[in-house]
Nucleic acid binder design. Sequence first.
RNA 1: GCCCCCUUCGUCUAGCGGCCUAGGACAUUGCCCUUUCAAGGCAGAGAUCACGGGUUCGAAUCCCGUAGGGGGCGCCA
Length: 480
Amino acid sequence: MEVRTRFAPSPTGYMHIGNLRTALYAYLHARKNGGKFILRIEDTDQARLVEDSVKVIYESLRVTGLEHDEGPDMGGPVGPYTQSERRPLYRQYAEQLVKEGRAYRCFCEKAEKQEEPGEPDEGQSIFGYDGRCGRLAEAEIKQKLDSGLPFVIRQKIDKEGSTSFKDFIYGDIVVENKQLDDQILLKRDGFPTYNFANVVDDHLMGITHVMRGCEYISSTPKYILLYRAFGWEIPEHIHLPHILGPDGKKLSKREGSAALSDLLAKGYLPEAILNYIALLGWNPGTEQEFFTKDQLVGAFDIARIGKAPAIFDETKMTWLNAQHVKALSPEKAHELFLKFYPDTVIKGFDAKKLSGYIQGKVEKLGDLPAMTSFLTGFDENYSTELFVNKKNKTTLESCKETLTDLHGLLSGVDAWEFNPLLNGVMGYSAQKPLKLGAVMWPLRIALSGMTVTPTGAIEIAELLGRDEALRRIALAINRL
RNA sequence: GCCCCCUUCGUCUAGCGGCCUAGGACAUUGCCCUUUCAAGGCAGAGAUCACGGGUUCGAAUCCCGUAGGGGGCGCCA
């Protein structure tokens, strides 16, 4: 049977990284098995519709390359793929259950959820519905209906016994039926709840593997009861452990890494993001950690998904991102860097050359402005203490001497290019004699005013150009 | 309150009864390289496998309990 997975986000306005991972796994599983990856929009909450948020979903899938085979934008054999357009279907199936006595109309007042949970009400549970409308007599129902009372449709759950299912990750899950609520299937406004729509749609759309966050694991028995009520085949259920923030709590927008857009803005490569989140809860069974998207497709296996929640560690993602940056072709890297360089760098310097020099050191593209600040934002008041370096045995005095020599030497260089510059400096260090590091250190400090730079002294000198480089060296000599 | 789930270095993880003196990666520390600080290479430190009982010749691996954490109990998804 063809594998069919789906990603079913609700349009909230941003792509949560946990949801993205769910999409990734569903995508990988479908691709790995030559199946179909379907996009379904779950917009059944009319009160929460966010303008343009469907676009965010399309855009997120596009930039990460998680292309779907069927969806609202391209159609497919089991459309429509937007739940708000499937309302008649849900009504039809809900009515069918009512007719069969597996669901009933409930005329009760809306039980507003308290915003502040506070102390749970003593005694009477605020949890669950007592099922009273399920015991209404035929005549009462007719009378309420005739008087135009609004109603919802609730699933009728026999409180005897228990219901179980086998989760692919978590194994057998058994729940006493008395724990199960007569959940609402169809809301007062005629829209289905998630609880109902997901079952109807997953079945109608032929989904073979239901992948979603493990917050649904407790309600899955209710879905199982629904599948049984309809006599539908139960798909494979694959509940995924959560991704947590550094504090071990839910990954929140405050961390600045909960949304895909945040990560992209910081300059993480889409492929690196996929690579990193794939490893949060899954491992290939080998020691490989660097994966392109295609390599993930090849290596992915739902059998190797773990059970424990994972903490999102931006440090490790940064490292992985650096690996992906290194793997880029120089042309591609430069093209991407261009989007992050300040205008002053692009206009004032050989940006292409710069990109080539620093590619191996870029961790995330958002660091580029700070990394290149020494070019345009040279701070002439840098501390002269920077010149003192134990390892290279440089002192303020030695640096002054070296720089004075270098200034004279470099002034005479014919072509201000990497090789002549390097040869000049190397010749000087050999002749002096001084360790190359002892020469390079003061030169680099003088040119950049920084102790750590994204590239070496010669490269910086070349990028700055003769006049500026010599000016900075002269400045350093004066200050020493 | 009731129910479900989870628990191996700081973090991501390997491990599915003997290969474990618990392996790898990030981070951290030190060394090396000397066409440069960095990057790269190498090495070290870091986990009484949450805790307590069992089962077994043998347990990180199986069973039970405890604790801690997470999730669910919405006319949200």
